[in-house]
Simulated scan of single mutants.
Amino acid sequence: MKLHELTPHVGSRKNRKRVGRGPGGTDKTAGRGHKGQKSRSGAGKGSFFEGGRSRLIARLPKKGFNNVGTTYEVVNLAQLANIEDATIDRNVLELMGLVRRKNRPVKLLGSGEIARAVTIHVDAASEGAVKAVEAAGGKVILPEANEAEKAE
């Protein structure tokens, strides 16, 4: 006996049914019965279908709220202490690794202290952050302020 002469035992292997391929694939209805939803391709009602009554997810009470507001990249005053530039804008914050996502606006928050006068260009800032920067002799420039100056 040689390796190329080996074959499996008779009846131990069976070819799969090639459904819908003529008489060998159970012919005609291909094992799906006659007509009806289950005989069609793409048949089925989905895992959440409950026989026509309201879905469970629709019957459960709604709770909480969905905040569709703006998501900011947050920068705190304490993080700005390491930056030695007199003017801090988005480019400087990106270089320092404080802002990662380019599609989100930057917001300055007042956690920490700043000891020197700097000009900060951000999209939004908390009142506490603005007061702290102005107390140190600097200023915070927001986009709304720029638009107001252009209007004048």
Score class of each variant (00 low, 15 high):
residue 131 K to G: 05
residue 8 P to C: 05
residue 129 A to K: 01
residue 130 V to Y: 02
residue 90 R to H: 06
residue 21 R to H: 13
residue 45 K to V: 08
residue 20 G to C: 09
residue 65 F to W: 00
residue 132 A to G: 00
residue 98 L to E: 05
residue 44 G to F: 04
residue 54 S to D: 14
residue 66 N to M: 08
residue 99 V to C: 07
residue 130 V to A: 04
residue 111 S to W: 06
residue 13 R to L: 14
residue 101 R to I: 08
residue 23 P to Q: 09
residue 60 L to F: 01
residue 5 E to C: 01
residue 146 N to D: 13
residue 104 R to T: 07
residue 17 K to S: 09
residue 24 G to Y: 10
residue 122 V to C: 10
residue 139 K to G: 04
residue 138 G to L: 11
residue 49 F to T: 11
residue 102 K to Y: 07
residue 115 A to C: 04
residue 72 Y to E: 06
residue 72 Y to R: 05
residue 93 L to P: 04
residue 100 R to I: 10
residue 12 S to D: 12
residue 94 E to S: 08
residue 141 I to E: 12
residue 138 G to E: 08
residue 146 N to T: 12
residue 91 N to G: 08
residue 138 G to M: 01
residue 96 M to R: 13
residue 149 E to D: 10
residue 106 V to K: 05
residue 48 F to Y: 03
residue 5 E to T: 13
residue 147 E to M: 12
residue 32 R to V: 03
residue 13 R to E: 13
residue 71 T to N: 03
residue 66 N to W: 02
residue 104 R to Q: 15
residue 36 G to M: 08
residue 124 A to M: 08
residue 128 G to P: 02
residue 121 H to F: 15
residue 6 L to V: 15
residue 80 L to H: 02
residue 84 E to V: 03
residue 100 R to V: 12
residue 22 G to D: 14
residue 48 F to T: 13
residue 98 L to Q: 07
residue 87 T to I: 15
residue 2 K to T: 09
residue 102 K to D: 13
residue 9 H to A: 15
residue 118 V to D: 04
residue 11 G to H: 07
residue 68 V to W: 00
residue 2 K to R: 11
residue 113 E to C: 10
residue 83 I to A: 00
residue 148 A to I: 14
residue 40 R to P: 00
residue 14 K to S: 13
residue 132 A to N: 07
residue 50 E to H: 03
residue 31 G to L: 02
residue 141 I to S: 05
residue 37 Q to H: 14
residue 131 K to E: 14
residue 139 K to F: 05
residue 20 G to D: 15
residue 146 N to L: 15
residue 77 L to D: 07
residue 7 T to D: 09
residue 113 E to V: 11
residue 77 L to H: 03
residue 58 A to F: 04
residue 4 H to W: 11
residue 4 H to V: 12
residue 107 K to Y: 03
residue 12 S to L: 03
residue 102 K to I: 05
residue 83 I to M: 02
residue 136 A to K: 02
residue 23 P to Y: 03
residue 72 Y to A: 01
residue 32 R to M: 07
residue 150 K to F: 12
residue 71 T to Y: 00
residue 69 G to W: 01
residue 31 G to Y: 08
residue 28 K to V: 09
residue 107 K to I: 10
residue 44 G to M: 04
residue 25 G to Y: 08
residue 68 V to N: 08
residue 102 K to T: 13
residue 40 R to Q: 15
residue 55 R to H: 07
residue 62 K to R: 15
residue 106 V to E: 10
residue 80 L to N: 00
residue 63 K to C: 04
